Amino acid sequence: MSRSQALQSYILLRLLLAPLMLWVITTVVFLLLRATPGDPVDAILGPRAPANFKQEMREQLGLAGSLWEQYVDYMGHLLKLDLGESATSGGETVWQIVGDYFPATAELAIAGMLVAVIAGTTIGALAASHPNTKTDLFGRLYGIVTYSIPMFWFGMVLQFVFAVNLGWFPLGTRFPATMPPPESITGLYVVDSLLAGNIEKLLTSLHYLALPSLTLGLLIGGIFERIIRVNLRRTLQADYVEAARARGIPERRIVIAHALKNALIPAITVLGLTFAALLGGAVLTEVTFSWPGLASRLYEAITQRDYPTVQGIVVFFAAIVVVASIVIDVLNALIDPRIRY
Rank of each mutant, 00 (worst) to 15 (best):
Ala106Ser: 12
Val191Glu: 02
Ser184Asn: 13
Leu126Thr: 03
Arg140Asn: 12
Tyr147Lys: 06
Leu194Ser: 02
Met179Gln: 14
Leu166His: 07
Gly120Trp: 03
His207Arg: 13
Ser148Val: 10
Gly112His: 04
Asn132Tyr: 13
Glu183Val: 10
Gly91Ala: 12
Phe160Ser: 12
Met179Gly: 05
Lys134Arg: 10
Asp192Tyr: 06
Ser193Leu: 09
Pro181Asn: 04
Thr173Arg: 09
Ile199Ser: 15
Lys80His: 15
Leu194Val: 14
Tyr147Val: 06
Ile123Lys: 02
Thr173Tyr: 11
Leu214Glu: 00
Trp168Pro: 10
Gly187Glu: 06
Tyr147Ser: 02
Phe160Val: 07
Ala177Lys: 15
Thr93Ser: 15
Ile123Thr: 02
Leu219Ile: 10
Leu188Trp: 04
Asn132Gly: 07
Lys80Asp: 15
Thr133Trp: 14
Tyr208Cys: 10
Gly197Val: 08
Gly124Thr: 02
Tyr189His: 09
His130Ile: 06
Ser86Thr: 07
Asn198Cys: 12
Ala128Gln: 13
Pro212Ser: 08
Asn198Phe: 06
Ala125Arg: 03
His77Met: 13
Val191Gly: 06
Tyr101Gln: 10
Gly90Lys: 05
Met156Ala: 09
Leu194Cys: 10
Leu214Asp: 01
Ala111Asp: 02
Met75Leu: 14
Thr204Trp: 05
Val157Gly: 07
Leu158Gln: 05
Thr215Val: 01
Lys134Asp: 01
Gly187Ile: 07
Thr122Asp: 03
Gly90Cys: 12
Asp100Gly: 10
Ser213Glu: 04
Thr93Tyr: 11
Thr215Lys: 08
Glu85Pro: 01
Glu200Val: 14
Leu137Met: 14
Gly187Arg: 14
Glu92Gln: 15
Val117Arg: 00
His207Thr: 01
Thr186Val: 10
Thr105Trp: 01
Lys201Gln: 14
Phe102His: 06
Ala109Ile: 01
Thr105Gln: 03
Gly90Tyr: 06
Met179Ser: 10
Val117Met: 11
Val164Gly: 02
